[in-house]
Amino acid sequence: MKIILVSSKHGRSTMVSVWMLVPVLFVLVSTITGAGYLGYQYLRPIQSDIVDQNASLIWLDRIENQAAQVEKTRVYTEEQINALRIRLAQLQARLTRLDALGERLVDVASLDKGEFDFSVPPAVGGPESEFVDYQAPDFVNILDELANQIDNREQQLRVLNSLLGDRKIQNETFVAGRPIKRGWMSSRYGYRNDPFSGNLAWHEGVDFAGKNGSDIVSVASGVVTWAGTRSGYGKLVEINHGNGFVTRYAHCDEILVELGDVVTKGDIISLMGSTGRSTGPHVHFEVLFNGKAVDPAKYINRVARF
């Protein structure tokens, strides 16, 4: 079998036998087959490396490490959330105490509860302004700032409470009022005729007459510095009110307090009698300031200044 080859350039034809092309085809097929085999051998180590068992173990180890890191992050996040919950609960408790303290201060100071209502947030407002870019601060920093504000408010309330407490104490120790609940003034402060001798004599207090056994009360809070018999006074109660003030209640029938007792304004300290140098049931009332007797009338008729 023969093949005729025609040249497109010169128009010539050549006759070639098929058997002459067999070696050429063999060489061509062998070359292609060898190239394919060499390519396969070249690529097979790479594929083997990709699916190597060591590589699989490495990837599994990485996945386990990442899973452990995710679990660690989850636990840490839960701990932080729980810590924030506890912190918020503490701040809420402190705010509750501050509200209670504020309500107490309102009551002590006799302020208008409508003006100082600690159960509602304070009223705020202002004209509308241009919006600016806002970046939310860290949540923990917000809590710390809130805690600092609470500390400042708590300190201010403590100072206010202390001032109001001092004012209340001053009001309690402020000498004012009558030493009896019932009775009348039978003798004034100053010169008078002595009821026993009839001679002109100095009277360092005022006398209130009344029914024997009636109540004698303290005109201010203080500490009992005398509770017993004294010459001329009979049974005597003496109270120190601080700030230089001392009051005396004499001629008592019965003393109801003891030395060192703390009494408050209006407490019953003794019962009216006629012990000592006395002509009948009454209480001799004296007011001393810095150790000197003063006219009790100006303290009997005055009212609390607070």
Results as ranks from 00 to 15, higher is better:
Ile4Arg: 15
Leu5Ala: 14
Ser7Leu: 09
Lys9Cys: 02
Lys9Met: 08
His10Arg: 15
Thr14Leu: 12
Met15Thr: 14
Ser17His: 11
Trp19Tyr: 05
Met20Ala: 09
Val22Pro: 00
Thr31Cys: 04
Gly36Lys: 09
Tyr37Thr: 01
Tyr37His: 03
Gly39Met: 08
Tyr42Glu: 12
Arg44Ser: 07
Arg44Leu: 06
Ile46Arg: 09
Ser48Arg: 01
Asp49His: 12
Val51Asn: 00
Leu57Asp: 03
Ile58Pro: 00
Leu60Lys: 01
Asp61Ala: 05
Arg62His: 04
Ala67Gln: 02
Gln69Arg: 13
Val70His: 01
Arg74Trp: 02
Val75His: 05
Val75Leu: 06
Tyr76Ala: 10
Glu78Cys: 03
Glu79Leu: 03
Ala83Cys: 00
Ala83Leu: 06
Leu84Gln: 12
Ala89Cys: 00
Gln90Ala: 01
Gln92Leu: 06
Arg94His: 05
Arg97Gln: 11
Arg104Met: 07
Arg104Asn: 11
Val106Pro: 08
Val108Tyr: 13
Ser110Tyr: 10
Leu111Glu: 03
Ser119Trp: 06
Val120Ala: 09
Pro122Met: 10
Pro122Val: 13
Gly126Ile: 03
Ser129Glu: 13
Asp133Cys: 06
Pro137Lys: 10
Phe139Pro: 05
Val140Asp: 15
Gln149Asn: 14
Asn152Val: 15
Asn152Asp: 15
Arg153Met: 14
Leu163Lys: 12
Asp166Ser: 14
Arg167Asn: 12
Lys168Gln: 15
Ile169Tyr: 13
Thr173Ile: 11
Pro179Trp: 08
Asn193Ser: 14
Pro195Ala: 00
Phe196Met: 09
Ser197Phe: 08
Ser197Ala: 10
Leu200Tyr: 11
Ala201Thr: 15
Trp202Gly: 00
Lys211Phe: 12
Lys211Thr: 13
Ile216Phe: 07
Val217Gln: 15
Ser218Phe: 04
Val219Asn: 04
Ala220Gln: 04
Ser221Phe: 07
Gly222Trp: 01
Val223Gln: 15
Val224Asp: 10
Thr225Cys: 07
Ala227Gln: 09
Gly228Ala: 05
Arg230His: 07
Gly232Ser: 10
Tyr233Leu: 02
Glu238Val: 11
Gly242Phe: 04
Gly242Asp: 04
Tyr249Met: 04
Cys252Thr: 06
Asp253Arg: 14
Glu254Gly: 00
Leu256Phe: 09
Glu258Ile: 00
Val262Ile: 10
Val263His: 02
Thr264Cys: 05
Thr264Ala: 08
Lys265Ile: 01
Asp267Glu: 13
Ser270Lys: 10
Leu271Glu: 03
Gly273Leu: 10
Ser274Trp: 01
Gly276Leu: 09
Arg277His: 12
Arg277Trp: 13
Gly280Ile: 09
Glu286Gln: 08
Leu288Cys: 04
Gly291Tyr: 02
Ala293His: 10
Ala293Glu: 07
Lys298Ser: 12
Tyr299Trp: 05
Tyr299Ala: 01
Ile300His: 04
Arg302Val: 08
Arg305Trp: 13
